[in-house]
Simulated scan of single mutants.
Amino acid sequence: MTDALKRLSDEGVAIWLDDLSRKRITSGDLGELLDEQHVVGVTTNPTIFQKAISSGDGYEDQLTDLAARRVTVEEAVRMITTADVRDACDILRPLFDATGGRDGRVSIEVDPRLAHNTKATVAEAKQLAWLVDRPNAFIKIPATKAGLPAITEVIATGISVNVTLIFSLERYREVMDAYQAGLEKADAKGLDLKAIHSVASFFVSRVDTEIDKRLDELGTDAAKGLKGKAAVANARLAYQAYEQVTGADRWQKLAGRGANTQRPLWASTGVKDPAYPDTLYVTELVAPNTVNTMPEATLQATDDHGEITGDTVRGTYEQSQAELDALAEAGISYDDVVQVLEDEGVEKFASSWNDLLASTEAELARRAPKEA
């Protein structure tokens, strides 16, 4: 465990890895990251699985067996992805037990093509929970308008949820409301609230990418001076919203019934612009009771040269709001930016899922038994 990663953990930031593959599981690499670099959780998404399975490394035997059974490509993809998540859950189970379910988590996402269908999302979440069959699995549900009631209904069944693709402060408040509504329903059913957990994945780097592009189009010196500030400011204000919600009477009543806080999770923390420090979305978002899920490159950069100087979120709210206000004054529409990002996020994950289906279908066809 390095000093930087230990300091980050000591500040209350849970370090999760934003990646998974069968090779990472079978080689022992995942276990090494847990032992040596203070990783305490894993997140996946359709893009991660598409890259892992398309590489073919470690999936040959299962693909051959699935082809022999003549399963549909949809079933094949779910058998492969849930197997990886189940095995990763087993590796992280000691952490899950040691932290009372707080960490030691592995996330798997509902089919992104269902992002605008509430009933189908709920049904898929239940199916995934059943397929993985591990208490430390998180089912990821996107924070679309249709996803909000799905979050409530899935939480109400006792299934733990990672809410993903959150970009706006308004939507984040709606997510926290959906979580609390789900807990209230679960409590009314007599379920044990202590067994239900959730994180809210607030996306970071994509905000800078979209806003910086618009600032470049403006082309003024004033606009250039605003680049690289929006993502961190947005995330810091999300933490302020989290503090406000958890300090309110509604949450305090749930907490008194044993409910677990829905921790903010900083997602999309790999820096896209090489002009910015490669640890920007780690060192500038240090706050207690948060999660930072990092691509391996960001994890290693933090390990190597990350400067953790304590809490870098609380006490910044006024400045963060001023930075977003300056963008509005420059003509950048916050509402338009976050809607574009949500739409693109759903589209990108659906595209990756379709690519995964296509490549898996080709692998199944190549291995299909010859007709007698």
Rank of each mutant, 00 (worst) to 15 (best):
M1A: 14
D3K: 15
S9E: 14
V13A: 06
L17W: 00
D18F: 01
D19V: 09
K23Y: 06
R24Y: 01
E36P: 14
E36A: 15
P46G: 10
I53F: 02
D57S: 12
Q62T: 12
Q62K: 14
Q62V: 11
R70Q: 07
V73D: 12
R78D: 15
I80W: 06
I80L: 15
A83H: 07
D84Q: 15
R86C: 01
F96Q: 10
F96W: 12
G100L: 08
R102A: 06
D103W: 00
D103G: 02
V106A: 05
D111P: 08
N117G: 09
T118M: 04
T121M: 06
T121G: 11
E124W: 02
A129C: 03
A129S: 12
W130N: 14
I139L: 13
T144A: 03
L148D: 04
P149A: 03
E153H: 02
E153P: 08
I155F: 04
D177H: 12
A178Q: 05
A188G: 11
L191G: 11
I196R: 06
T220H: 02
T220D: 05
G225I: 04
K227R: 11
A235V: 05
A235T: 06
R236E: 01
G247C: 10
D249E: 14
D249F: 06
Q262M: 14
E284W: 11
E284F: 12
L285R: 11
V286N: 15
E296G: 14
L299F: 00
Q300S: 13
T309I: 10
E318K: 07
S320K: 01
L327N: 08
A328W: 00
I332A: 10
Y334R: 09
L341M: 03
E342A: 03
E347V: 02
S351G: 07
S351W: 04
T360C: 09
R367P: 14
R367G: 07
R367W: 02
K370F: 00
